[in-house]
Amino acid sequence: MSTNLEGAKDVIVFDKVNKWYGNSFHVLRDINLNVKQGERIVICGPSGSGKSTLIRCINRLEEHQEGHLFVDGTELTDDVKAIDKVRKEVGMVFQQFNLFPHLTVLENLTLSPMYVGKVPKKEAEEKAMMQLKRVRIAEQAGKYPLQLSGGQQQRVAIARALCLTPKIMLFDEPTSALDPEMIKEVLDVMVAMADQGITMICVTHEMGFAKAVADRVIFMDQGQIVEQNNPHDFFNNPQTDRSKDFLSKILGH
């Protein structure tokens, strides 16, 4: 499955982006990457290769030191206004869910629309219930996050990110903290989301998901983008020794 991206504009542009942790650790090296509106990208690569860092730069949870990074036409700099604008466009789902445990599921969802979007409470709640239905968890609205299973929590987290009606969704290993039987319920929700044309960037090692929905797979190693291709070619015909090695490790022995 592949989206028709012809003529779509770039919503994310990495232009020679470099990032260091501290003074010595060069974590992102000369990243060039253009993501088209509606494109669905899966990022994979060995642990420590900089995948999380890369997508966290997109909503400025991490800052880059060199190069330019544009999200929906806005360059990310120290300018707080630009950061706020970008964060309204970008939703993020974390490996550890990061739901707010002191708020109910519904309150988790309405928080940002109410206090950032200034939407009246009633409207925010209606919209939140809609998103909860979308991830098939509406009946849990009144519970607290820790009363839910991991898979349910992650679906709530997805619904929470969707409440901002973001243009772009970032996923950082959304299923790797889950038990096998819960992975599918989360992936199903993500596949359904992919069908609706939102731009998705997903760090994951779920190769079945990559094959099913990705327009492009990006393989990273040591802070660099080593290889990118459509999923069919990437999995069947990897070009570099690095990716061959990586695929042989994760696809079985």
């Binding site: 400025r60 949870l61 309204k88 990061n98 739901l99 707010f100 928080l111 901002l164």
Partner: peptide
Amino acid sequence: QAEAAASLGL
């Protein structure tokens, strides 16, 4: 927690 809040624009 702070990261999730930031990502939501708070």
